[in-house]
Design a protein around this nucleic acid. Structure first.
Lengths: 345, 345
DNA sequence: TCGACTGATGTTATCGTGAACATCGGCCAG
DNA sequence: CTGGCCGATGTTCACGATAACATCAGTCGA
């Protein structure tokens, strides 16, 4: 019996298998399997023997073999843009942990947003037979590549607005924008300009649209939207293009607000006295910049957790959870004040 | 022939296997395998047939089966602390991409830094038979947990100083600190205080030690080190404890510098006129805060890539690359100036 | 008292791939 | 002309796990 196996030269130091455990415990490998999978109908004594053998041998179940026979990879792909920003990263980390806790294997793939890289990333994921896919903060181009695949598994779209119906998991962008505009208006601002994220970003677009809606609803002037790329640098560089009549700026994220403020201060303006600025996201640094930034908070971890809940339900055929967009929250700090009475012409 | 397989009820829609491809191409599954693995000795015509069949069926090789028969998982674990900070995240993303490009499967595991969570994370990774492990920005406690495992695969320690010898991959902390201190000293500072990261962080400790060395080497006073937790908030909260005689502060990272500056400005000081501040890391926002932060840049992606190079070499038995710490770089901006001649007592 | 049932366990087939070995036809050297 | 070799391809086995089925010893009710 032992001969079959031990007669061959042990390559390196093969990890112990179920057979090894079984032999050691004096049972069959099937009994070991039963113990491992918590099946009923194993005598307590036997079970103890098996567990002891497992412990002694330092046995770990071979996931490749398990996946093969089950026909399930238990892997779930996560596609992440290659920009280490606070928001997506926070959601990503939440997704990873939730997935692992739900018994899945997160396969995280970070890609630049060009077609070739995204294709590579997706191919990698599908090569590993993922059972579901999480797409994080995807721009239009990435969505297009994804739509080009014939995907047979459920896909959750995170932080990309609600255009994917129940498969979208996001914070309510309209609500966030409404909160921001209402806050500015309540301080008496009438000429509000929007510094948006890149046009390719679906969430940036959503905010742009929502700003237009809110402004129009209140009969306020609509100043030209400025487009940045989410970075502080772009906010800084956009500052000179601000409309001279604007008394307040609503920035698509906190980083751009940061850069914008820096440029404004350099130009001799005081914030918020000469110009009010409001951000979006509430990154941890926002409370500590000068002036402390009033902003709209998004609960990124919650978005990640809800997405996992959604996919796990989809995979196991349970009823899908409610994925109406999560609430946004206004965080009032010190970057918004009433406009100067003597407005600049 | 076809009967064997197709006589059973197809559960859902089984993915095509090599046999399916082989049947379609009129060859044996082994020939398909040979084509897939680029073995020589397949007639061009046959090869074309196989490739066509693969294309038509949308065949993807089953990684579980492959891993099983090869006895290799091709997976490499990455252990990441649950804090979405710029530095570690940048390295993480670089590691992921480099690993994937090298043909491995990155298994990223994000964990809080308590023992139970780290143990869970490591168990998860070892359950998946990782062939190597990347440990990112680990604190002492995490290193202790890792050391408690009997690990049979190579482990690279990233951003955790050079205490792990050739398995450490980091930026040269001593050099970075020396650069910072030299810069302050060149502006005439003699009373320099250090606001460090948490004592549990090996890199924070390294910087603390290096500051002491640099100060002593120059015969300068050593003011009490203040310990934060890398967050802007902690920098803010530590400000009141600054030594009244200090004319410059060297912060363990940029976020703490940011918070500290905010507190100092609130207290009526001007930066850099009344107090010089220098940071560490050079996060993207640092150029745009007020004042623009002078800091020490670390090349985080480079660290990640070198780590992957190291592990791939270790796995394939090649000569290990040189892992002497990477150079740090001084980025001069506007947060350092000469101390006031009328020093505060 | 005996057969049916049940609980505990063993035996065998299977998943999809790659490695080792087998086959087979043609070519070349003796 | 023929035997050996080589190139191209097929066949069989193994990897380690789970599922389905088989076995076997008690037990219980008629």
């Amino acid at each position: 019996m032992a001969g079959t196996r031990s007669s061959r030269v042990p390559k390196a130091e093969r990890a112990p298998s179920m057979h090894d455990v079984a032999t050691r415990a004096g049972v069959s490998h099937q009994t070991v399997s039963r113990v491992l999978n918590g099946f009923a109908g194993v005598r307590p004594g036997t079970k103890a023997d098996v567990l002891e053998a497992i412990e002694e041998l330092g046995y770990r179940r071979n996931n490749a073999a398990r996946s093969l026979v089950l026909g399930r990879s238990q892997a779930i792909g996560v596609l992440v843009p290659n920009t280490p920003n606070f928001g997506p990263t926070s959601s990503l980390y939440a997704v990873e942990r939730a997935l692992r806790e739900a018994g899945f294997q997160p396969l995280i793939t970070v890609t630049p947003e060009d077609t070739a890289s995204v294709t590579n990333g997706l191919d990698f994921l599908f090569d590993h037979a993922i059972e579901a896919l999480v797409v994080l903060a995807a721009v239009r181009d990435v969505l297009d590549v994804i739509d080009g695949y014939e995907i047979k598994v459920p896909v959750a779209y995170l932080l990309t607005g609600d255009e994917r119906g129940p498969w979208s998991v996001s914070v309510n962008q309209e609500e966030g924008v409404a909160l921001a505009i209402a806050h500015l208006v309540s301080h008496g601002h009438k000429r509000i300009q929007h510094v948006a994220g890149p046009p390719l970003s679906t969430e940036a677009r959503l905010r742009v649209d929502a700003v237009a809606v809110e402004l129009e609803r209140r009969g306020l002037a609509s100043l030209p939207t400025l487009y940045g790329d989410w970075t502080a640098r772009s906010g800084y560089e956009l500052a000179p293009q601000l409309d001279p009549s604007a008394t307040a700026v609503f920035c698509g994220n906190d980083q751009m607000a940061l850069g914008l403020i820096r440029a404004l201060v350099d130009a001799g303006l005081r914030i918020p006295d000469d110009m009010s600025v409001i951000g979006f996201d509430d990154i941890p640094e926002s409370a500590f910049i000068l002036p402390p930034l009033t902003t709209i908070r998004q609960d990124f971890p919650a978005v990640g957790e809800l997405a996992v809940e959604l996919l796990v339900a989809a995979i196991s055929g349970h009823e899908l959870p409610d994925t109406t967009p999560l609430p946004a929250e206004l965080i009032v700090r010190a970057s918004v004040a009433a406009p100067q009475t003597s407005e600049r012409a």
